[in-house]
Design a protein around this nucleic acid. Structure first.
Lengths: 204, 204
DNA sequence: CAACACACATACAGTCTGTATGTATTTTCG
DNA sequence: CGAAAATACATACAGACTGTATGTGTGTTG
């Protein structure tokens, strides 16, 4: 009986330890929220001590940030997979939005990204993450393409992106709370069409 | 030199004490956020002890809820003052929205109502307050009137209210961060017009 | 005016965060 | 290869905070 979990390189040890801590923290942050989750509980769930945590992360907030960044990138990946095909810009926007709502049904994502995230990291901090590696990045690109193709009227891109993104966020929260996704998709589509170039052709 | 702050009725003592605690807590919650503000600091600012706090409020969260409810009602009052005149329903909606953005420039309101509020009280708890005594109440009524007047297409009222409300919230955050209010009002107006009844007459 | 309820202060127990310090393992380099 | 340095992690500690229990004085009530 040999213990094969010996002789590991430092890089590998760090990687797996960080992953373990992030995974354990994610579970608890999702279940109980950031404020109600203590670091002793996190390290117990990960099977290590607080020394490991504070060696790899500056503080509890830095660990939370790592959890949020990972989750945010996963949501973005799902969206880009769903809206990558070469479809018309308006339909790509709608498809991306639908994919976002689907991705946000993964349990805990709304709490991490829409409730605790802004409060713990600040709205600016959360926006920075969202705009760089999160869903807002895809949305912004889609909107820019739609404006370039004259499908949408020219408007301040930042403003449009923020407001539409925020509406999608709230829709994700409502859907999680049991609302009918169709009702919200209808309104979101109306929002998009409200910015359409003025030749007045809404769908059937 | 008589001390005239003697002989006070119990009801009056409670009222002023609650008001003092709420005012002191508001200042600190706004400056440092809910999590970073301790109850010792709050009672010191109010010139009393923690005994008073825990006599009038079940816990720190209950005090925060009282702060949020007061602030929420003040915002709603400003909105209803601004959109009460008998103007056309669409213009009343726009005016109410503008009043909301104005009211939210009062320092600290975005943090209380849009960042810490949802995280501390939960989205459902915050929605309950907002829908009953906050800005969402006015918005919902305005939208219902617009649909009844066939100015807006019939859509799920809850969905429309939530999504538009959320977009206004984000606009308030952006304006506070230094963005141009006009850019955001333009997009918000486009959202409203996207739900307009299909006779295709947007303003100039 | 006596009994009671209320408003508030003080004291205490438990828990959490961040840091300082100690130890074992890995990496670097003469 | 072996000593020195760096890294990974554990343990111990100080300070702070929350909520509760308890004590005291002031208004209220029968």
């Amino acid at each position: 009986m040999q213990q094969e979990t010996k002789r590991r390189s430092n890089r590998e040890r760090s990687q797996t330890m960080r992953a373990q801590l992030i995974a354990a923290a994610r579970r608890l942050f999702v279940d109980k929220g950031y404020a109600e989750t203590g670091t002793p509980e996190i390290v117990a769930a990960a099977g290590v001590t607080r020394g490991a945590l504070y060696h790899h992360f500056a503080d509890k907030q830095a660990l939370f940030r790592a959890v949020v960044e990972l989750e945010s990138s996963r949501v973005a990946a799902e969206i880009e997979t769903a809206s990558s095909g070469d479809m018309p810009v308006r339909e790509a926007l709608i498809a991306g939005g639908r994919a976002f709502l689907g991705a946000m049904r993964e349990p805990g994502r709304t709490r991490l990204l829409l409730l605790d995230g802004p409060a713990v990291l600040g709205r600016a901090g959360m926006d920075a993450i969202d705009a760089e590696i999160g869903a807002m990045r895809s949305l912004r690109e889609g909107l820019a393409a739609a404006m370039a193709a004259r499908v949408l009227r020219p408007m301040q891109l930042d403003a449009v992106t923020l407001l539409l993104s925020s509406a999608y966020d709230r829709a994700a929260l409502a859907v999680e709370a049991g609302a009918e996704p169709g009702d919200f998709m209808a309104v979101l589509t109306a929002f998009v069409d409200g910015m359409a170039a003025p030749d007045c052709d809404r769908g059937p």
